[in-house]
């Protein structure tokens, strides 16, 4: 077989020669830098960014929480000494961030499920000037704002529980 050519079997079982597709160049990918750059984008992109950041943050917290609760099997002293590390002002502020991140991730996640199902996207339309995509409409924007407002309200509630007397 000539170099760079591969056989492909058609649905009719006929073998055909095809030019091998080269590995795509990664020069056009910005990787993490592009992922973390919110400056060129609108609210939808910032919401995409927050969804991923809060997801990674919550997974790290969850692993830490599973480890933290495992200390209970070593007895009361082990549990209380580990608890002392978390029951501080900084520990409480960290918990408030967890409350905010989980509320945003949940509310925005529900919006994304609706969007993936095509609900709230609007009908397709001709791209006229100023070329605003019909899919990024007020329903999507209000969903993002609702997620942010719910997150702030949950953080406020958490603050009152953890710091209030």
């Amino acid at each position: 077989m000539a170099s760079g050519n591969i056989n492909k079997v058609c649905p009719s079982r006929e073998k055909i020669l095809m030019k091998e597709i080269e590995q795509p160049s990664r020069n056009n990918l910005e990787g993490l830098k592009g992922w973390l750059n919110p400056t060129r984008y609108g609210w939808e992109r910032i919401s995409y960014w927050f969804q991923r950041l809060t997801g990674v943050f919550l997974l790290i917290y969850f692993i830490g929480h599973v480890y933290e609760t495992s200390t209970i099997v070593n007895g009361q002293n082990a549990w209380e000494s580990f608890l002392e590390l978390t029951q501080t002002v900084w520990g409480h502020l960290f918990l408030i961030m967890v409350i905010g991140a989980s509320t945003f991730h949940s509310a925005n996640g529900i919006r994304l499920i609706f969007t993936h199902a095509g609900i709230g996207l609007g009908t397709p339309s001709r791209p006229d000037y100023p070329y605003s995509p019909s899919s990024l409409n007020y329903r999507q924007k209000s969903g993002i704002w609702i997620a942010l407002i719910l997150s702030a309200a949950a953080m406020f509630y958490g603050f009152n529980i953890l710091f209030g007397e």
């Binding site: 990664r26 990918l29 993490l32 992922w35 991923r52 997801g55 990674v56 919550l58 997974l59 969850f62």
Partner: peptide, 17 residues
């Protein structure tokens, strides 16, 4: 949460490469 979290991590990592 383990299923959801680690699958989410997989999706993020697959977006990078």
């Amino acid at each position: 949460i383990s299923l959801h979290g680690f699958n989410g991590m997989r999706i993020i990592l697959l977006e990078l490469r």
